[in-house]
Design a protein around this nucleic acid. Structure first.
Length: 416
RNA sequence: GCGAUCGUAGCUCAGUUGGUUAGAGCGCCGGUUUGUGGUACCGGAGGUCGGGGGUUCGAGACCCCUCGAUCGCCCCA
């Protein structure tokens, strides 16, 4: 049957039913919480000039560009489907003059695209919710941003088993000193490192810290910690963030090995991690990216943000049952079809969700309605050429429905 | 990009060491039964066994290629 039908593109997903309900629940909860924290809504383009995404990634572009969905448009310009929100928002901050709104709290959500091998909770087209505070150098911004994330996870009902892991990468001076010390340390243990990590030593030494290789983990345990290299300012900044989190009642744990691979990250880095999603344990992650907007040609603009995969959050939320209709109208006799059509429309106009069961074997329509899980069932049959209404059960809802339909029943020419 | 496992009706699966016209449950459609009733019974539709090639007298079962899924590695903005 499907022989002649094109297949869905690898890594895409058709989200439906209970999964779609969980997805919508995540987005709706995000929208609600974002307003509580006074984040403003933004809608961003799904594609940008490739440079918007490639330039901030710097030297590693070569590796990362292979994971971007890039193409030339008819004018020969290289465009890319957004693999993240932040770069596009940073571009808009510059090109649209959003400096005037700083400090600017922004929230957005939607599809992102990465050319990667699909696995659990990871797709080529996936969806994220995203929050940023642009043009805010003070640690209080980090606290607010994290408090919002924390509240979101709690309101989604998935905070159990999820921990906030927090680290600092310091300012550029701290970070450079630490990085140098790590390179020295790992170079001294080069022979004991895994092949992957020897490679990382050249490309991106900080990444050795979250290697999954057993041997590497042992070496990493004795690696010099960032704390030994923090400048006074960096230390004070991190202390202000952690004190703020404590004051806000946000639980956190220090993970001194949590890193971000790109140079524009400064100070705070964090991930909300669960042990319930296999290899893809990060549920929400982000950090402070004070250096990003400069790489795109803007003024120095300290900013902090996070993103979270909606699919992964939805998996943790679990299946949400689709609600049954408030009323199921069953036309048990085709003679009552017009009456049923009018009745169901009237109910919907009065705010009742309603299904109409009027197809298939008339004798089985009632059973269908029962199975569909409607809260109240209104069965319509014919008696002496006139439609008859009958409710299943008797409760307050039936009375309301009767009241809504009372005038309609009187006006129906063949209703008694 | 690499590795492992998997791919049979709409869904969940069974198909014995390769052997006749490919099965079940659920769902769907119709009929009978019941008639404030999610019951029971009967019947029906629906599969070129992911796709292509090969081995064989014979392949859903074996081999190769390909597409896809799942899990892990790499990567993770």
């Amino acid at each position: 049957m499907a022989n002649n039908t094109p297949q869905a593109v690898r890594g895409t997903q058709d989200i439906f039913g209970a999964d779609a309900e969980a997805f919508a629940f995540v987005v709706e909860t995000f929208e609600r919480v974002r307003k509580l924290y006074r984040f403003r809504r933004a809608e961003m383009p799904v594609f940008e000039k490739t440079e918007v995404f490639s330039r901030p990634l710097g030297e590693t572009t070569d590796v990362v560009a292979k994971e971007m969905y890039s193409f030339e448009d008819r004018g020969g310009e290289s465009l890319t489907l957004r693999p993240e929100f932040t770069a596009g928002i940073a571009r808009a901050f510059i090109t649209d003059g959003w400096q005037q709104h700083a400090p600017l709290r922004l929230a957005t959500h939607g599809p992102l695209f990465r050319y990667e091998r699909p696995q659990k909770g990871r797709y080529r087209q996936f969806h994220q919710i995203n929050a940023e505070i642009l043009g805010a150098a003070e640690p209080q911004a980090d606290v607010e941003l994290l408090a919002m994330a924390d509240q979101l996870l709690k309101e989604l009902g998935i905070a159990d088993g999820v921990t906030l892991q927090l680290n600092t990468l310091g300012d550029p001076d701290s970070r450079d000193a630490w990085r140098g010390a790590l390179v020295d340390y790992f170079s001294a243990h080069k022979d004991a490192l895994s092949e992957d990590s020897r490679d990382r030593l050249e490309r991106n030494p900080l990444r050795i810290l979250d290697s999954k290789d057993r041997g590497d983990i042992a070496i990493v345990a004795d690696a010099p910690p960032i704390d030994d290299f923090l400048t006074r300012g960096a230390r004070d900044f991190f202390a202000a963030v952690t004190h703020g989190l404590d004051a806000a009642g946000v639980a956190w744990t220090r993970n001194a090995r949590l890193v971000r691979g790109f140079d524009y990250y400064r100070h705070t880095a964090f991930e909300f991690v669960t042990d319930r999603l296999g290899a893809q344990g990060t549920v929400l992650g982000g950090g402070r990216y004070d250096g990003l907007i400069e790489t795109l040609g803007g003024q120095h603009t300290p900013s902090v943000g996070w993103a979270a995969g909606i699919e992964r959050l939805a998996m943790l939320v679990g299946d949400l049952a689709e609600a049954g209709a408030d009323v199921s109208v069953v036309v048990e006799d085709d003679g009552a079809l017009d009456f049923g059509t009018g009745a169901v429309t009237l109910l919907r106009r009065n705010g009742f969700s309603a299904d109409l069961f009027a197809t298939g074997s008339p004798r089985k329509r009632f059973d269908k309605a029962v199975k569909a899980g409607g809260k109240t069932i209104l069965a319509l049959s014919m008696k002496d050429a006139a439609p008859q209404m009958r409710f299943k059960g008797e409760d307050a809802a039936c009375e309301k429905i009767s009241a809504i339909l009372a005038d309609y029943v009187k006006s129906a020419p063949d209703m008694k």
